[in-house]
Design a protein around this nucleic acid. Structure first.
Lengths: 179, 179
DNA sequence: AATTGATATATCGTTTTGATATATTGTAGA
DNA sequence: TCTACAATATATCAAAACGATATATCAATT
C-alpha cells in the first residue's frame, strides 16, 4: 500500500526514468525540482529502505572498485503505485512564505523594515528567475514529449515569479505612499 | 534566545496584537494566514509551553466558570524577540506543490491524467481566489495602518493565484496541441 | 432530554528538516 | 609527487511540524 510519505512518490517518479543512487536522487531534486519540492538525505535514505521493504524498488550494489555504491531500480509494483498516485487528482500544495509572515506582522517593526524584507525577497526571486529562464530557453530548443512536463513546471515557476516581482513594486509603493 | 521554531514567531506575532488561547491562535492562523502559513495543534501547544518557559509569554487562567481556559500574553522579552526576527531579512520561503510533482512525472500516466490534475488545481485556486477577493474588498473600505499589512498579504495571494490561472490555460493548451 | 457542533487542551506516531559524522574518490595547484 | 580541497556517497540524530485522535465542556437546536 502506498504510504503517506510524499518523498516516496518523488523517488519512484525519478526512478521511473532511470536507476539512481540516493546521492543521485538528491542531486536530481536539487537541480530539477527544488523550486517546487525539496528533499533532504534525512528523508531520502529512510524512504529508500522503506520502499525496498515494500518491494517498490530493488537495490543493486554497483561498486566500481572497493567503493560501496548502491543503485536502485523501480519494480513493476513501484510503477503501479506511482501510477495510482498520479491518477489521484487530490494534491496538497503546502506553501510557507516566511516573507509574508514577516510582512503580516510588520506593524510591530515599522514600514522601513517591511520594505527591506520585500527588497530581500525580490533579490532572491530575481536570481532564481534567471535560472528558470535559462532552463526555459534550453528546453524550447527541443520540446519533445520527454521534456514537455519539465517545461511546464519551469513556465509555472516563471509565471509565478514574475507575479511576485510585480507585487513587490506595488507593495513597496503602498508602504511608501499611503500615509 | 530565539529558537529555530518558526511557529514561535507566528504565535508571538499574533500575541503582539491581543491575548489569545491556543485554540484562538489556531483559528487566527486558519482564517487569516493559512494561505501562506499553516499551524496545527500539535505544534501550537508545545510551542506555547516552550515560549512560556523562555519567558516570552505569560499564561493566565481566565476560566469563566468551571471551564479551564488558558489565555497567553506577550512579555517585553517576547516583543524584543519578535522584533529581532522581523528585522532579520533572511526568510525561508518553502513551497511544496504536489500538483507540480505530479505534473513533472506526468509522462508516466499520460496527458489526459495531467490535464485532469491541472483542472483539479484550477478548481481549488478559483475557490480560494474568491475568498481572497472578498477580503480585499472589505479591507479597501478602511485601509488604515492597522490593516495595510494584511491587505498586502491578500494582494500577494490574489496576484499569484491569478498567475496560476493564466498558467493553467497555457499548460492545458500545450498538453492538448503539441503533438 | 438528547443530539449536534463549536470550543478547548493535549498527546501520539509519523514525516521531514537540517546538521553532522564518516569515508572515499577525483582533481587542481604547490 | 603530494597534498589539500571539493565532490561523491551513505547514514544517523535531534528537533520541528503534521495530522489524527482523545477527552471534555459549552451552547444551541430538535
Amino acid at each position: 500500500m502506498a504510504k503517506d510519505r510524499k518523498i516516496d512518490m518523488v523517488i519512484l517518479g525519478l526512478l521511473s526514468h532511470e536507476d539512481l543512487t540516493g546521492y543521485d536522487i538528491k542531486k536530481r531534486i536539487d537541480s530539477h525540482i527544488s523550486f517546487f519540492w525539496k528533499g533532504s538525505f534525512g528523508s531520502i535514505y529512510p524512504a529508500l529502505s522503506g520502499l525496498q521493504e515494500q518491494g517498490m524498488i530493488v537495490r543493486r550494489s554497483c561498486g566500481s572498485g572497493s567503493r560501496e555504491k548502491i543503485s536502485y531500480s523501480i519494480t513493476e509494483d513501484g510503477r503501479i503505485c506511482l501510477n495510482e498516485w498520479l491518477r489521484d487528482s487530490n494534491a496538497c500544495n503546502d506553501l510557507k512564505y516566511e516573507t509574508l509572515v514577516k510582512l503580516f506582522f510588520g506593524g510591530a517593526a515599522g514600514r522601513e523594515t517591511s520594505i527591506r524584507n520585500i527588497d530581500a525577497f525580490e533579490k532572491d526571486i530575481r536570481r532564481d528567475l534567471e535560472v528558470l529562464k535559462m532552463y526555459k530557453e534550453n528546453l524550447e530548443k527541443d520540446l519533445s514529449d520527454d521534456h514537455i512536463y519539465f517545461y511546464l513546471t519551469v513556465t509555472f515557476g516563471i509565471d509565478t515569479y514574475e507575479g511576485y516581482l510585480k507585487w513587490c513594486s506595488k507593495a513597496r509603493k503602498l508602504l511608501r505612499n499611503s500615509l
